[in-house]
Amino acid sequence: MALTKQQIAQRIAKELQDKWYVNLGIGIPTLVANYIPNGIDVEFQSENGLLGMGPFPIEGTEDADLINAGKQTVTILDGGSLFDSAMSFAMIRGQHVQLTVLGAMEVAQNGDIANWKIPGRMVKGMGGAMDLVASAENIIVAMMHTNKRGESKLLKQCSLPLTGVGCVKKVVTNLAVLEIKNNAFYLLERAPGVSVEEIQEATEGILISEGEIPEMKL
């Protein structure tokens, strides 16, 4: 069975390490906050100017002046802090944030990522994604393995305008966990019940699977 979006988030949460500051992008990445492993302290950074982001507010207490980068109303935990956008991106470019999790339209086997524009059709902008991918030491891409037309999103080369070059090292999809190195996708784990052949079928870029590939544990 391919993973649900929640399960992709659940799998990514296992990558979190104690004392990490983490920036979660819009969509599947946001869900990672629901699955922080026990015994681990992490703090979520929202690039609009918030560290120590908490869960959505209790109904009736929402504040128009307290939102996350997805413009959703949120809360701030004890020990959290607020700051302006320049300081926020100083944290990001200065590599004070240890992990960035973001979505993508395409990822290439050389680590290129595209997620901000489809020429002539969809132009939403890059927001903070270009700053994040150009600077983060650890980037995990959370996405479906194929697009709505069933085409692979793990490619030899991105066809869409790039967000960053050679920066992605890990991808978690509904089918697999993959590491990017040596200009290829290395298969690390399969979704439960999904075969290596099925993953190969859904991957346009070079897929390398060495030895027995374990199923993911959620």
């Binding site: 956008s85 991106f89 990001i92 470019r93 927001g127 994604a129 270009m130 960053g164 070059v165 050679g166």
Partner: peptide, 27 residues
């Protein structure tokens, strides 16, 4: 890029005509 936008605003007010950033390189 959002961080570039923020820093360009900051630079404007701080008397810095230009700066280097990694954001957007290769795009």
């Amino acid at each position: 890029p959002q961080g570039t936008l923020a820093e360009r605003c900051r630079a404007t007010g701080a008397g810095i005509p230009a700066f280097y950033t990694p954001a957007g390189y290769g795009t």
